[in-house]
Design a binder for these strands. Structure first.
Length: 298
DNA sequence: AATCCTGTCAACCGCCAACAA
DNA sequence: CTTGTTGGCGGTTGACAGGAT
């Protein structure tokens, strides 16, 4: 049903929308330059990274993906990525065969390995950022339950409160990633500027942060992040050179974060499985990633 | 063909902060 | 300072489409 007004034919719904709805529809749907559907792998990786770093702060995440709306990213997270992480988590619970048995476009576990590498890179950037920053923050963080707690938005607030940290952290990761439409520093600063306004109180814990329900279980994410000192899954995923670096960085980080951590987390099912799969495939994937990384630019 | 189930996504809702009167 | 308005944000809902039974 349409109504004609002064030569303009408008859907009846338009007339019933409040200004707020109109704005929303414009920003989420009508605004020119919006890219819709079919998230690229790099976008997916960025979302995963940023979600891990920022929590469910979709507007902030969207600022790094100029062509995507926060709503779009939020939907994509809720419908696709959360599911993938869940699946991954299920796999860690000893039902790996169920988790990975599905025939998907990617080969068995490929996505997970990539995700693992992605998160590792994010962690690497985090290490760099933190090692540059006051070490005392690490002590605060280690007081809580390990690295995962740091990544949990409600507890990560201690860390996330420092916009400098976020900026540095993201720069650390993004310099390893295909450049986006905007330059890294530009987008980072932009986002940081966006965040400083409302997030100055973030360290105190915002409701949205504390209400975050998209949290993968500590075990799953710690394993994903390769927290445990024996991280074959991660090191197997990296090329030799990078493996060395990562190992060093990992050790550094663990030394800083969990110096007294003596209890070795046993190999997760996934890690065992990754171990079995061999280095070759992992390296192949990683090479593929770097190729992808340079090829698929915005 | 009909029904059920599931996935997707635009839109709505409520909360909060900024701003103006 | 108080109150009202507006805009931004994140969580959630509901309509719709497509596949499965």
């Amino acid at each position: 049903m349409v109504l004609g007004i002064g030569g303009l034919f408008l859907p009846i719904q338009v007339l019933l929308r409040c200004s707020k709805s109109c704005r929303l529809r414009w920003t989420n749907y009508l605004r020119p330059g919006i890219k819709r559907g079919n998230f690229t792998e790099h976008e997916e990786k960025m979302i995963i990274h940023l979600q891990a770093l920022l929590g469910n702060r979709w507007a902030a995440i969207a600022s790094y993906l100029p062509q995507r709306t926060d709503n779009d990213i939020k939907n994509y997270w809720n419908t696709h990525l959360k599911k993938k992480l869940k699946k991954f988590e299920t796999g860690l619970d000893g039902n790996a065969k169920d988790g990975f048995s599905d025939s998907q476009s990617m080969t068995k576990g490929q996505w997970e390995r990539r995700l693992q590498t992605d998160i590792h890179m994010a962690r690497k950037a985090l290490c760099e950022a933190l090692s540059l920053e006051k070490p005392s923050s690490l002590c605060d963080l280690k007081a809580s339950s390990g690295f995962y707690s740091m990544m949990r938005p409600n507890q990560a607030t201690t860390y996330a409160s420092s916009t400098e940290n976020i900026s540095r952290l993201l720069q650390g990761w993004m310099k390893n990633s295909p450049k986006s439409g905007r330059s890294t520093s530009e987008t980072t600063q932009n986002s940081v500027n966006n965040m400083t306004g409302t997030d100055s109180t973030y360290s105190e814990g915002t409701p949205s942060a504390s209400n975050n329900t998209d949290i993968v279980s500590p075990e799953a994410l710690e394993s994903l992040l390769g927290l445990d000192s024996s991280t074959p899954g991660v090191s197997q995923s990296a090329s030799l050179d990078e493996t060395t670096n990562i190992k060093q960085e990992t050790n550094t980080f663990q030394d800083e974060c969990k110096p007294k951590m003596e209890t070795q987390v046993p190999l997760s099912v996934l890690e065992k499985w990754l171990f079995d799969e061999g280095v070759a495939q992992a390296e192949e994937d990683l090479i593929g990633m770097s190729i992808y990384g340079t090829a698929e630019m915005f």
